[in-house]
């Protein structure tokens, strides 16, 4: 283990690359919002779109030192709905129910969680 830096562990990802398209995942992890979504999903496997938009917007604000207004949240929600969540669904990491506007299932490969530095707290 060792270093607790928040940088994707590309080696671990590469090892598990037969589970998912490596390049796509690396690109996804380069995005602040997507990282926050994946970390949040690790703890909450079935959040609503609203809930994700709230948390991801607030998390981004705390990282950039900005104050997020409702318009920022609105933009984040649109990105989640039209870009981030569909990509995660394509990869099979989540199932998204467009009726209820909520994630219905989460199945993130361990290698991806590990790359994000999310350690399982279950002991």
């Amino acid at each position: 283990m060792g270093d607790e830096q928040f940088e994707p562990d590309l080696y671990a990802l590469r090892e598990a690359a037969d589970e998912f398209p490596f390049d796509d995942v690396v690109r996804l992890l380069g995005d602040r919002h997507t990282r926050a979504v994946l970390v949040y999903l690790h703890d909450h496997p079935a959040p609503t779109l609203e809930e994700l938009a709230d948390v991801v917007t607030a998390k981004a604000a705390s990282e950039t030192g900005a104050i997020a207004a409702p318009s920022d949240r609105e933009r984040t929600q649109l990105r989640l709905y039209h870009a981030i969540l569909p990509r995660l669904a394509e990869l099979g990491f989540i199932a998204f129910d467009t009726e209820t506007k909520a994630v219905s299932e989460t199945d993130i490969p361990d290698a991806v969680s590990d790359a994000l530095g999310v350690t399982d707290t279950e002991s």
Binding site: V39, D43, A58, K59, A61, A66, P70, T121
Partner: peptide, 22 residues
């Protein structure tokens, strides 16, 4: 949860609507 510290606050109005975060 697993998100990095420091945390953040979300401000909601009386209907629960998001009004701001930082």
């Amino acid at each position: 949860g697993s998100l990095d510290e420091p945390g953040f606050v979300i401000i909601r109005d009386v209907t629960g609507e998001f009004r701001g975060a930082l």
